[in-house]
């Protein structure tokens, strides 16, 4: 089946590029690989029939947020990674161990769960911009306005932090 094949291919691309973001030595490579992660996530959103969110993922994450990241990386010019002392090696081994336990716990929780997760096959009616917009402007009007306030606060805070002489 074409859909599920495409889903699993983009899943593999997403996991590989996310891992490469974490392990890459160069912060610029990390940023570019993060764009790839976001694009494969957008493909997955499309296959899950969340069309509007797929467009937003590319516009907001791959467009706006990553441009901001790249600007700051190039502004700070700290792409080189320094040599690691022994203590940090130990720290890395410990973090790897913790993450393996974490993944194991998640998988155990999902695979060992008692509830049946499969639903009857239905045609999704909620992925369009129209459905999302209707929900946002009726049931979720207050959170929507709160989000606009949050953006204003973030804007003012960023300008203040960037301007201040420290």
């Amino acid at each position: 089946m074409l859909h599920s094949t495409l889903f699993y291919i983009s899943a593999i691309v997403m996991l590989a590029s996310a891992l490469a973001v974490v392990l890459s030595r160069n912060a610029v490579y990390s940023a570019i690989l993060l764009v790839l992660t976001f694009f494969s996530l957008a493909i997955m959103y499309l296959l899950l029939e969340a069309y509007f969110l797929a467009v937003l993922e590319v516009l907001v994450y791959a467009g706006a947020i990553m441009v901001l990241f790249l600007f700051v990386i190039m502004l700070l010019n700290t792409t080189r990674e320094e040599a690691m002392p022994k203590l940090i090696q130990l720290q890395k081994a410990a973090s790897l161990f913790l993450v393996v336990i974490f993944i194991f716990g998640i998988l155990l929780l999902i695979v060992g769960g008692t509830t049946e997760l499969h639903q009857a096959e239905v045609i999704s009616t909620v992925g369009s911009a129209r459905a999302l917009g209707t929900a946002l402007f009726t049931d979720y009007l207050l959170p929507f306005e709160a989000a606009s306030l949050l953006l204003l606060v973030a804007l003012i805070g960023t300008v203040y932090l960037a301007k201040r002489k420290m």
């Binding site: 969340a50 009616t125 909620v126 049931d139 989000a147 949050l150 606060v153 973030a154």
Partner: peptide, 22 residues
Amino acid sequence: NSVDGQVFVFLVMTLAAAEVAV
């Protein structure tokens, strides 16, 4: 088949944009 989850995703994206800027 519920739109609520996607509304949450929309709000999380807004939050992420604000968080990245700050």
